[in-house]
Structure formats: structure tokens, C-alpha cells
Design a protein around this nucleic acid. Sequence first.
RNA 1: GGAAGGGUGUCCGAGCGGUUUAAGGAAACGGUCUUGAAAACCGUCGUGCCGGCAACGGUACCGUGGGUUCGAAUCCCACCCCUUCCGCCA
Length: 414
Amino acid sequence: MLDIQFIRDNQDLVQTKAKQKGYDVDISKLIELDGRRRSLLSEIDKVRSQRNDLAAQMKGAKPTPEQIDQGKRLKEKIVELETEFSPIEVAYNQLLRAVPNVTQEGVPIGGEEDSVEIKKVGEQKTGARDHLDVALSRDWVDFERGAKVAGNKFYYLKGDLALLENAVTQFALNFVRQKGFTYMTVPHMVNSRVLTGTGFAPRTSDQSDEYAIENEDLSLIGTAEIPLTGYHADEIIDEDKLPLLYAGLSPCYRKEAGTYGKHTRGLFRVHQFNKLEMYAFTLPEKSNEMHERLLALEEELWQAIGIPYHVINIASGDLGAPAAKKYDIEYWSPVDGKYRELTSCSNCTDYQARNLNIRVRRNDGRVEMLHSLNGTAVSLARSLVAIIENFQTADGHVVVPEVLRLFMGNQAEI
RNA sequence: GGAAGGGUGUCCGAGCGGUUUAAGGAAACGGUCUUGAAAACCGUCGUGCCGGCAACGGUACCGUGGGUUCGAAUCCCACCCCUUCCGCCA
């Protein structure tokens, strides 16, 4: 969520930015609730103050009946005011949490088609075979038995492709460790607070992309970003310890409801995939720099593997609520003759931090919200699609990218 | 799943109805001393909200949510989490 003080001071800006993101929130309504909430709270505080004074008078001596009677009246008054306060507080919190993060300067305004390409790297080949055709012909993937055992869009990876997945993982893991990230495995389920605090739709809502566990306040994670964001919840971290860099490897579970028809064939969009996610907690003034660094790392990694790509600056309407700015790397698909999403890298500024109460203690003693950022290192199922499409040979084999061979028993081709 | 114990500020830890305005210690910061450092000594030191230009004042917060009371960190109920033991188990 945003700082209410910031919203008060920048009502028009917040309203405009929310609209540009496609969020239908009424800032004037929030301001009105905020006003009523504050005036009521100050009234309550006043009566509480009287109660506390009275209680202090009664300390030591035996209270008189008059004092007890007055105390009772004050108590009733407080209950009365609190009853009035409670629904306002609930509505206020609901509305406040619905306000999306303010986008940064340089974020293109508009929908998906308005995202701006800022860089293009590598050769744009054409005429490759679809990854699923290749994988099926080599018996590398089994969606039919995935469906039998779990359901539609579940799959088994087999043999060399499964090994290739492991090789990509190992390569990426070594890469991020060399760059200073602490490797972590994470809980694959999280509670509602962490889920919604990270900026995902509540598990109870229709829009939730997460699988919820029945009769438990737990959801399967859609990305390691969620447990990594929650890792430092309610903590105050010394300035000298920042930035904190983590790399979380986890399976990602997503319902992907309503996305059918959007390139559903094969491994590109599935209900479960593994992913190595980079995560950073930084000082507020350092998050933009870190955002560029995360993008640079993603580029370095994918250049090392040898995948052609471009980088796009995501338009406002395509940003999630917590993101202030987002870069995607899209790889070149020689099958479709266009770019398709491969990684994503967001600066969430202090939005997630405020939700989950993650702060920094500056060297001068001040305490403030820190900033959080996340970026995909490798999203495994998609990585395999990109590699099969860009490294296939005429006879249906796949050349193993050089940097991965070490992790594939030095095979040059599979 | 069963039993017992426990969740207090950056950390450790006391408090178990009204001198809690949360003791004491550690860490941190400032100072004295010192050639410098350490030690010692002195001082400062929780977070949020509201009001105020500010000094400051008010209020809330001792796992979470209810309840009892004139008054709750303290008593009662429910739930969550942690530790130990037992059971089960990769």
C-alpha cells in the first residue's frame, strides 16, 4: 500500500496514476474516509485520555462509587465511538490497500501494446519447428499422462529435456551466486497475509491465480517472490546490511484461468514450472540503480546462453499493483516470428514493504520503509521453449548451449 | 495428533490487576579519560497514529482476536506460532 500522507498530499497524481494502471479506485472517497477516521479517532483518544486520568486518580486509595460510576460512563462512551469507528476503519483499510503503486517517470502510459522496446540483442532467425513437436518426437515431454495424473496443462519432462532443465538451473544458480545473491529454498505455501502483502489477489477472490489449500490459510506460491518478500516481514534492518540479495528456487503453481488461447500450446504456459527468482531489499534511494542492475544481470545471463531477445519497458496498464516500473525480457521466437515473454523485473519501491512492515534503520537512527525488487533469473519451462526453438538442428536435435554443457555431461547435442 | 512449558522493545530478559512513565543487561550513538585503542565512567536510545512550525502533548501497541474490570503486559476464552517429550513418518 501507499503512505496515506503521500496520498493526502498528492491526490490528483495518485488518482491519475491509478487510472493509467487500469485501477478503478476512488481517491476522493478514500480521502473522505480518512478524514472521518481521523476526527473520530481523535474523539476516541480524548475520551480515553479522560478514562486514563480517572484511573490514575483511583490508584492507591479505594475508589468512590462516584468515580466508578463515572468510569462506567466513559467506558460506554468509548464503546459507542468505537462501534461507529470500526466500519469506517474497515472500509478505509480496504480502499487504501486497493490503491496501486505510483508508476515512475519513464513508464509508458497505456496498455500492453504501448510498452516500449528499449533494446534488441541477437539474430532474428525464422522457420524453426514448434518446441512441442520437437519435444514430443524425442519423447521429452508427456502432457497426456500429466493430464491423467493431475489435469490439463500438467506434464512430465523426460530424459534429455529434464536434464537440460537441470543444466539451466545449475548454470543460473552458479551465475547468481557469483553475483552476490544468497541461494535459498523457500516455503512453497504461504499464508494470506504474505500473499496479499506481496500484491497478489486474495486467495478467496475470483481473481486469485493461486491454488488455495482447503480449510487452511495457505496457498501454493505462484513465484518465489512471495515467500522472499515475506522473509523479512515485521523486521527493521540496519542500513549497513543493505542491499540484501536473495535467489529463491521454487516450483511455481498457477491456475492461469482465463488465459486459454494465449499461446497455450506446450510448455509456454503451464500450471506448474520451476523458477529461479532474484530478489533485492534496498535503501529507497538505491532501488532504481538496483532495478537497472537486475535487468543487466538478466541480460548477461541470457546472452551467455545465447538467446536473442529484446527488452521492453512495460506500459502502465500492464503493471501489477505493487510495481512502480517493470522491464520484461522477451526472447525471439523463430517459430512465431515474434518476441515472447521470458523474464520480468520489477521495482516495487516501498509498496510491498509497507504492506508487510519491512523497514530500515538508517545510521542516524531514523526508521523508514525500504524498497523491494524482483527479477526472474530463469523460468525453467519457458527457458526450454526458448532453447529448443533457437538451438534446434535440421534433423530434430537440439544443440546444447555452450555454457550449459558442463552441466550436461559435456554433451554438445541432445 | 497427545502432553508440558513459553511468545515482552534492535537483541537478551524481569514483570503476572493500579509507583510500568515496560526494571536490568547487551548492542548502538554522543561525551570524559587516553599518544591511540580497549576498559571504566557519564549521557542518549521502541514503533505507529493524531495535533503542533517546533519544543512538546494525546493515544495505541507486551503473538492474534474476543471477554472480565472504574483500571489489563498482568485475569478468562478462542486461535496462531515456538521449544521439549511422546506418537506417526520421507
